[in-house]
């Protein structure tokens, strides 16, 4: 069985993230790393590999040269191979173009299962897994709190607001998993050393038969008109709670705001 895990290289959420002049995410402003939410996807794929015979876990990323780090981290965690799709024409692609390229790459890689994180930590739309499923015509099992594969059946438990659902489909399928699915493993020293010898393929749009004209900033189906940093918040009132001063201040605040 072959599992493709989609991984994204994102600016560190604890750093100073900002936008470039063209309205795209400024990837030079903050250090980059593998999106934390994708680690849960890798973990779930590795658990399937740990339990099954002959399971190959391939980490796939779409991004510039730096995105190789996301593949590297995935290999260190235990993925067996990497695919890095890198093409200048992709810069500024929206979610629709991103899903077009990834769907084409998945079709070429011919996996039985695609596992994604629930969203990236930068764009955070959480729509690419569903778009890929729609484009491939494969079942989409999204926001799984659990993931299991048995024979050619995949199932997830989806922990929704009004119900907890169990969803089942036949492979091949696209799955996304949440941060409820279980803590991701850290790379071991052995894993870090082994990663250096693992194969990484490099694909460009031409390898996928995707026309450069339908991706990138110029082809984006929505356009960013303006980006504005949030004005710094005015310092609020800080009250130490001695002799009930804190609760009194809070009651006054609630009363003044007509919340009570």
């Amino acid at each position: 069985m072959r599992i493709v895990v989609l991984v994204k290289y994102v600016p560190d959420a604890t750093g100073e993230r900002s936008f470039a002049a063209d309205g795209t995410v400024d990837r030079a402003a903050a250090d980059g790393l593998l999106s934390e939410l994708d680690e849960y996807a890798i973990e779930q794929a590795l658990q399937i590999a740990d339990e099954g015979d002959d399971v190959e876990v391939v980490a796939m990323t779409l991004g510039p040269d730096d995105a190789a780090d996301a593949i590297k981290r995935s290999l260190q965690m235990g993925a067996s191979a990497g695919i890095h799709i890198n093409d200048e024409a992709v810069h500024g692609s929206d979610s629709l173009a991103t899903s077009t390229v990834l769907a084409a790459a998945i079709a070429k890689a011919e996996p039985d299962l695609v596992v994604c994180g629930m969203a990236s930590t930068d764009g955070a739309m959480g729509v690419v897994p569903a778009m890929i499923a729609e484009r491939l015509g494969w079942p989409g099992l999204t926001f799984g709190a659990t993931l299991s594969v048995s024979g050619d059946t995949v199932s997830i438990r989806r922990d929704g607001d009004v119900a907890s659902q169990t969803i089942e489909a036949s492979l091949p399928a696209v799955v996304s998993v949440t941060d409820q699915s279980g803590e991701a493993r850290y790379p071991s020293m052995k894993g870090i050393l082994a990663a250096k010898k693992k194969p990484v393929q490099h694909w460009a749009l031409a390898d996928l038969g995707v026309e450069p004209a339908i991706v990138g900033l110029a082809a984006a189906s929505s356009t960013v008109l303006e980006t504005t940093p949030r004005p710094p918040k005015e310092a609020g009132r800080i009250v130490p709670d001695s002799d009930g001063a804190g609760s009194a201040a809070l009651v006054d605040f609630l009363s003044a705001g007509k919340y009570i």
Binding site: G23, S221, T223
Partner: peptide, 11 residues
């Protein structure tokens, strides 16, 4: 919540 973005669909 640190940035505000104005955007428009064009397709």
């Amino acid at each position: 919540g640190n940035w505000s973005v104005t955007a428009q669909v064009r397709t």
